[in-house]
């Protein structure tokens, strides 16, 4: 069950993981390695098997088949001290309504050997001025910060964050990213699920996309799904209309356009597909439905590109 080599290199090792609910496979032969010290984002539509996979890693659910090692232990039979080394921030949690932030953080700190300083953690998650507030009176975003505080109290080697910034305003999200980055710098392995692609792009060293219970793409955010190989998209204004073109040589096209306009190209933009574009295409491919039907707003630009490619050719 435990090999020191695996522990040193991989925080998580999954081979052939399967979990079936009422004859439907939620996780269907999933393989995945997560390196120690890595920030890993697991993306996927609801129902793809994300939560099932993460909860198997956290020890909340038993698997039907496959091998799983988390920090060198099988989470179904973790040894003493395993839970001291992991931190879990669940997707939604309420409860402990009548207890203040300070009381709750101090209380939870008592579960761990050598916990972080509770006051430092409360300040770190930005609840310093809410110390004396009962959980009942916290806003949704403040509750999430309290969840995060409880998750990192034990100074875990591996931290699970299930949609941690839901309900955060943009400023709080930026602050949270800073906190996660500092945890990662300290060597904490972080497994993150999120629906915010910008969050995954900002935080994750690697991204895994899961659909229908399998990993369909696994790479750095910059390279996911061949994103770095994709054509650049240029848009500009010509004869009062927006023009667009897709090309593997954007610099050449800009030079050409610049010559055509005799200098500045009106309203010029050059972009590569966003992580969201790639993600939607990936989950569209493997679920059988086109991304256009799933997310109508996302495909106006690509369809316009097709028109312009013909225009450019003529």
């Amino acid at each position: 069950m435990t090999t020191t080599a695996t522990t040193a290199e991989h925080a998580v090792r999954i081979r052939g993981l399967r979990k079936t609910y009422a004859d439907v496979a939620a996780v269907d032969g999933l393989d995945l390695d997560i390196r120690a010290g890595e920030v890993f984002a697991l993306l996927g539509p609801n129902g793809a098997g994300k939560t099932t996979t993460v909860e198997i890693l956290e020890g909340y659910r038993d698997r039907d088949a496959g091998e799983v090692s988390v920090l060198g232990h099988d989470p179904q039979r973790p040894g003493a001290g395993w839970r001291e080394r992991i931190g879990i921030v669940l997707q939604s949690s309420t409860g402990h309504d009548e207890i203040t932030v300070e009381e709750l953080v101090h209380h939870f700190a008592g579960y761990y050997p050598d916990a972080r300083d509770p006051a430092e953690v409360v300040t770190a998650v930005g609840l310093g001025d809410k110390r004396k507030t009962r959980a009942r009176h916290l806003s949704g975003g403040q509750r999430r910060r309290l969840d995060v505080a409880l998750g990192i109290l034990g100074d875990p080697d591996l931290l699970f964050l299930d949609e941690p910034t839901t309900g955060f305003d943009p400023e709080a999200r930026r602050e949270f990213w800073g906190l996660i980055a500092s945890l990662a710098d300290g060597g904490t392995t972080i497994i993150l699920t999120t629906h915010y692609l910008d969050e995954a792009e900002h935080l994750a060293d690697r991204v895994g996309v899961i659909t229908a219970g399998r990993i369909v793409a696994l790479d750095t955010p910059a390279r996911l799904g061949g994103r770095d190989q994709e054509h650049a998209v240029l848009t500009w204004t010509e004869h009062g209309a927006v023009r667009a073109a897709q090309t593997s040589e954007p610099t050449a096209l800009v030079t050409e356009l610049s010559a055509r306009f005799g200098g500045e190209v009106p309203s010029l933009t050059i972009s590569r597909p966003t992580l969201e574009d790639v993600y939607l295409r990936l989950i569209g491919d493997s679920t059988g439905s086109t991304p256009a039907t799933a997310q109508p707003g996302q495909h106006t630009r690509p369809s316009r590109i097709t028109d312009e490619q013909e225009h450019m050719a003529s």
Partner: peptide
């Protein structure tokens, strides 16, 4: 409300 689940995830 998830209190038990949260506690189960601690030592």
């Amino acid at each position: 409300d998830g209190t038990l689940k949260r506690l189960r995830g601690t030592p």
